[in-house]
Amino acid sequence: MCIPVYSLAVHDAHDLVRRFAAVLNNRDADPLPFWLDEFSDSGLARERVLAPTDHHA
């Protein structure tokens, strides 16, 4: 079965969000630097998926 590219991006974003939630739920900041590196490397930081920058009031 071929998975569309956008599905992989959604899967990756979902995985990152779930792992970030685990960091918060566990109240353990030790994994945060690794998570930040993975987030940065994922390309999602460059996308406007998680934090759009143009807000219109």
Rank of each mutant, 00 (worst) to 15 (best):
L44I: 11
D28S: 05
A45M: 12
R19I: 02
V10R: 13
N25E: 15
D37I: 09
L44T: 00
V23R: 03
L16M: 03
H56F: 15
L44D: 01
Y6I: 12
A51Y: 05
L36W: 06
T53H: 01
H55M: 10
R27V: 02
Y6K: 09
L32G: 03
Y6D: 13
A57S: 09
L36E: 14
D37M: 09
V23F: 14
D28K: 09
R48S: 08
D30M: 10
P4M: 01
R46I: 01
V49N: 02
H55T: 11
L44M: 07
A57V: 12
L24K: 08
R46E: 09
V5W: 12
A21Y: 12
V5H: 02
I3A: 06
Y6L: 13
A45K: 03
P4A: 10
G43H: 05
S40D: 09
V49C: 04
L24I: 15
F39W: 08
F39R: 02
T53P: 00
A45V: 01
M1W: 14
L24E: 03
H11W: 03
V23Y: 07
E47M: 12
R19E: 01
E38T: 11
V10I: 10
A13S: 05
A22G: 06
P33K: 06
P52L: 03
N26P: 00
L24M: 10
L8F: 15
P52Y: 15
S42L: 06
A22T: 14
A29H: 06
V23P: 02
V10L: 12
D28R: 10
G43I: 04
D41N: 11
E47V: 04
T53Y: 01
R18F: 00
L36C: 13
